[in-house]
């Protein structure tokens, strides 16, 4: 098994890397790029803690080969804040008490972010639906959904 070259843009930065084919995107991000915000909660694509955005779409980094991300734009939780300013979604999670132990948080944020990019005016049910691939053991989801909803409301006001 020899390394293959990989060109990838992570949080706006270009990387030219060589990776082994069996390296997952999660391993690349966490071990090689030291972006540890994405977490491994199950390694089997069920819990959602490792979710990142690939070209704007939430995907499971634990079930995505790094090489499959070649040529893609990846956004991780570390890339949400811009120049030190938190993304409104991050702020909403903080303000609404949507963060408890925090282990599922980055995955939740990334799915919510990807979802809102496509559905800026979604309702509660759609939000629950969009987050249904993420397991949270602390919050009962209530405040997470409220946090996402609050960002939706704001974008509607702007219109």
């Amino acid at each position: 098994m020899s390394k293959q070259s990989l060109e990838i843009i992570v949080n706006g930065e270009n990387y030219f890397l060589a990776v082994e084919p069996n390296c997952t995107l999660m391993e690349l991000l966490r071990d090689d790029l030291e972006l540890t915000g994405a977490k491994e909660g199950c390694g089997e694509g069920v819990c959602g803690s490792c979710t990142v955005l690939m070209d704007g779409k939430p995907i499971r980094s634990c079930l995505t080969l790094a090489l499959e991300a070649s040529g893609s734009h990846i956004t991780t939780v570390e890339g949400l804040a811009q120049h030190g300013d938190l993304d409104p979604l991050q702020q909403a999670f903080i303000d609404h008490g949507a963060v408890q132990c925090g282990f599922c948080t980055s995955g939740m944020l990334m799915s919510a972010k990807g979802f809102l990019l496509e559905n800026p005016h979604a309702g509660k049910k759609e939000i629950r639906n969009a987050l249904s691939g993420h397991i949270c053991r602390c919050t009962g989801y209530t405040k997470i959904v409220e946090a996402v909803e609050s960002v939706v409301d704001r974008s509607q006001e702007k219109r």
Binding site: V46, S111, F115, S132, G133, H134
Partner: peptide
């Protein structure tokens, strides 16, 4: 199938 953010985009 699965859940939107797990399976549907992949």
């Amino acid at each position: 199938i699965g859940a939107p953010s797990i399976q549907h985009f992949s």
